[in-house]
Nucleic acid binder design. Sequence first.
DNA 1: GGTTCCTGCAAATTATTTTCTTGATACGTT
DNA 2: AACGTATCAAGAAAATAATTTGCAGGAACC
Lengths: 287, 287
Amino acid sequence: MDIFTTMQEERGRLSQSEIRIADIVLNDFEFAVNASIIELAGKADVSPPTVTRFCRRLGCESFSDFKVQLARTAYVGMRYLKPEPKSIAPADVAQDIITKAQNALFLLHRGLDVAAIERAANRLAGAEMIYAFGSGGNSSMIATELQNRLFRLGLRITASSDHSMQLMMAAAAKPTDVLIGSSFSGRNAELVRAFALAREAKVPTIALTQSESPVARAAEITLPVDLPEGDNIYRPTSTRIAYLAVVDILASLIAYRIQPQATVTLRRIKQQLVTHRDGDDRQLLGD
Amino acid sequence: MDIFTTMQEERGRLSQSEIRIADIVLNDFEFAVNASIIELAGKADVSPPTVTRFCRRLGCESFSDFKVQLARTAYVGMRYLKPEPKSIAPADVAQDIITKAQNALFLLHRGLDVAAIERAANRLAGAEMIYAFGSGGNSSMIATELQNRLFRLGLRITASSDHSMQLMMAAAAKPTDVLIGSSFSGRNAELVRAFALAREAKVPTIALTQSESPVARAAEITLPVDLPEGDNIYRPTSTRIAYLAVVDILASLIAYRIQPQATVTLRRIKQQLVTHRDGDDRQLLGD
DNA sequence: GGTTCCTGCAAATTATTTTCTTGATACGTT
DNA sequence: AACGTATCAAGAAAATAATTTGCAGGAACC
């Protein structure tokens, strides 16, 4: 658990002086990581021993341990308190977006249900046919991405963002197939219907969505992604990066599971791309 | 500049004892951030003053400053030395992927040409029509994403992953339009041709690609993304996350530039999504 | 042979922690 | 309600530990 979260959770149980210390650390991280115990104590109007006690209470060995903990999580963790970039100057906007993206990955990692992902990977690796569903800009991208990643491993997969097609495919699917669907909001009613249809026919279902949402409840295995999206309506992308990372993990696990087969297919695709281009091997698979 | 890079770059200029210290830090980061100067000195068989001098040489104020610097960049920076996950256990694979993704964002940020992005944003914000090109799984996703993000801001844009269409569109474009293309490898010959065609017709061109590549040279403005892809052929995704982040930055800057108009369009789209779903406002734009 | 630079020792300085004490608050008892 | 006791917070001072500086010996390189 990171020190910022701890500090916020423990806040209620801290004494007056300790709250002052916590606030200074929270508000001026740069100062806090660089300050000595005396400087920090001075700024919080407390004595150095109080700072030591504060660190201990938060589960740290010592003041320097506290600073290290702080510095470690801070790079990704600290700024989730600030919903907006410092200014709309390009450099600040860039930094804001990148920090938030890193943060989303950090939070994703913390909340990851590894066991569920493993189960999902096993299911997908053994499927005769995979149907990947998602609608709207974000989730359809995830469905496409799944297709993109898994067909290269030699799996049979089709992606669809069309609700009518989704329903028909779900109805046509067999118990040896797998249906995987994504919904950022968790309230894509059509996807829920497709899941219901599939489950009636005993088709395994996997959802990539918010936990405790209708979509999550409709699927057999849920890969939960729960992130605060932030307030800026212009910019809902960091969640997408987290979803992509989940797809990536899934695809990697599947690849490791079916390795011999996957290597051959990948090599063939790569070979084709390389000969099609200018013979330089450095390029990536798929563009 | 982060301390890990500095350490590797300065390695040649260090003395014997200092190299020993550097190696210990590089190899056992966990130990290094938690150790006192005496412990570190002991492990490297040098005296504490030598450690202090080592820190100074690396540009740090003091040993504790060094530790803080270390802890700060380490979260993202330390593991780019290890190309493979520790094991293929799901938890390790997940951690590996997430670390690499964070790392890609970190490196992207470091190499970002903010001025170029700003110029690109200005061009796009003022375009009468935008053509977004990209082929292959990765770049076509970027093109789609551009469309996805920019149409919401009220801009006119179409994405294409079809080479023939791209050429026709490039030929049909006017100097008041903008052509933006993505290529991870930088060697998409058809895209180069489309850029050439567009430039003949004085259509502004923007490339999202590796710097110094054919595609980069073909475009008027290049937004360079230069990342090592790592050796694992199964997993080329962290680069994609970096590209997505660039799109995100671009879209945000454009949004801030054309704010009044953008807010209205966004609100209208959101309104429609909300009424279409179950009236809960929490969902994201676009899924 | 001289210069430069590395290095460790010891001393000095600084930072941190421990111990001890005071003051405040809460709670129970008369 | 008043008093006493327990508990806890918090600072002062002392003790300890860590870090840095100054200096000098020694190695390597002109």
